[in-house]
Simulated assay, not measured.
Amino acid sequence: MNATPPHEAKNRYLKDKSTDVTDSTLANYKTTLNIFCDQLIERGINDLNTLTSDEIQRFKEWRLDCVKPITLKTDMTCIKDFIRFCEHVNAVPDGLHMMVRIPKPSREEEVSSDMLTREEATQILGHLQKHEYASLRHVIFAVLWKTGMRRSSLYALDIDDLDAGPKPHLKVRHRPNTGTPLKNKRKGERDVRIDRETVEVIEDYLEWNHSGGVDEQGRMPLLMTSHGKRCEPSTIQRNIYTATRPCHYTAECPMDRSIEGCEATSYNTASKCPGSVGPHALRRGYVTESLNAGQPRDVTADRVDMTIEVLDKHYDHATKSEKMERREEHLMDI
């Protein structure tokens, strides 16, 4: 076998995967493998031909001190696939990938508990309606909460994807050639109904606060920065962290912090607030509250583009009491 530096193999692997996965997934692979390869080099492994299962296990043990078990599972799954590729290009000993042990987190460790409730969302929407009406933040929050769509789906929307007709909806489309792929590609395409109130917020935003023009791809994004560029997913995320920070919409801190001296009160540091949540918490909240309201599971799953199995495991955070209430109307006295 020829000598193969870790980062050289990593680059070949990422190039090979680039046609099979989305850009965001590829970026996650790159982050994980950069950490893995840097650790190997730090431990004196500059040639993958000398890589052993013991070194991989040592990385796993080191990584567990830094991340949650569910993150470690994702990391080690990526590394196992990377090692399998390295076998294919004759860079590591045959069969080494079978020695990579994938951790098995408990259900409690595997499922995130971050979820925005209907009460919290209603309070935030009230604040936005009164103090930040038709702002970029208002549109971002309203669409994510009312539809349960992914951040990447919101990012992909153009102005022309808004149909404000008698049955208003947003057209979610897979456009990888112009920079906005969907997670599930063509299978993720769908039309998503929205209520008239959300349409009015979007239309007023487009009229008063949208910067206009086109992006680098010649498209007219629904969400644009003041500099005339499509809002990046990170911008969407920072706006959600800001909107859900309790002191932002209640003017009070439930953690009894001094608002004036708190490090989390700026736009770029809102994620440091223990009470703020990211876009996925809105998605979980939408799924849970929709099911509690009686919306069928298959309808909810189709609307948010996920399988019922994933919905049940990761997104339905109803309490036992709420689940009992859901079953109530279907029970028969026998």
Rank of each mutant, 00 (worst) to 15 (best):
T147C: 09
L144M: 03
T319E: 12
I41P: 02
I159T: 11
D316T: 02
R150A: 05
D38K: 12
L136Y: 00
N239G: 04
R186A: 13
E329S: 14
N268F: 12
D160A: 10
D65N: 15
T319P: 11
N209G: 11
L182G: 06
E309Y: 09
Y249R: 02
D65S: 15
A301R: 04
V199G: 08
D191T: 07
P254E: 09
G44V: 09
E200A: 05
G228C: 10
K323Q: 13
Y241I: 11
T147K: 01
R196V: 14
H210I: 04
H169Q: 14
M98P: 00
C86V: 14
Q39T: 10
L26S: 06
K187Q: 14
K313Y: 05
T25M: 04
H174I: 02
L136K: 04
Y241C: 07
C247H: 08
L162I: 14
S106M: 04
S234V: 14
V139G: 01
K323V: 10
I202H: 02
V67H: 10
S290F: 01
A91H: 05
M332S: 14
L282M: 09
D94F: 06
Y13T: 01
N46I: 08
G278M: 02
T319W: 11
T19V: 13
T198P: 03
E110I: 05
H131Y: 14
G275I: 07
P279C: 10
C231W: 01
T180D: 02
K104C: 05
Q123F: 02
P6I: 01
K183W: 09
T225K: 15
H127S: 05
I83A: 09
Y133I: 03
I140Y: 00
E289V: 09
D316R: 04
S153L: 00
V92A: 02
E207K: 15
A121K: 00
N46S: 13
D114E: 09
S234T: 15
V92F: 05
V192E: 03
D163Y: 08
E232L: 10
